[in-house]
Amino acid sequence: MLFFSFFKTLVDHEITVELKNEICIRGTLKSVDQFLNMKLDNAGVVEDVRWPHLVSTKDLFIRGSVVRYVHLPSSAVDTQLLEDATRREAEAAKNKAK
C-alpha cells in the first residue's frame, strides 16, 4: 500500500516510465491503482526515432507489471516522509507476521 499512496501524491506531476522492453514514455501522471497500473496524459515516447510506431500515442494506460523504472522529479518527493512511512510499514508488516 506504501507505493500506491506514494504514487497518488505524484498525480499531476511529469514522470518518465521506463518499460521492461526499453521503451521510455514521458507524460503527466493522471491516475494510479493498487497494481501500480498508471494512466498518463500528454504522453510521448522519449526516443521517438527509435519507436516510430508509438509517436501517435497521447493518453495511455500502462500495465504495472511491464514497468521497470519510474524516473521521478526529486522536487516532488519528500524523502524524510517517505523513509518514515517505510519504517512504519516495515514495523506493521513485522507485527502482522507474528
Binding site: 521492461k20 501500480l36 514497468v67 526529486s74
Partner: peptide, 11 residues
C-alpha cells in the same frame, strides 16, 4: 544517472 528512481520489485 537519475535523481530519483522508482524500481519495480519484480526486476
Amino acid at each position: 544517472q537519475s535523481e530519483m528512481l522508482f524500481v519495480r520489485g519484480d526486476s
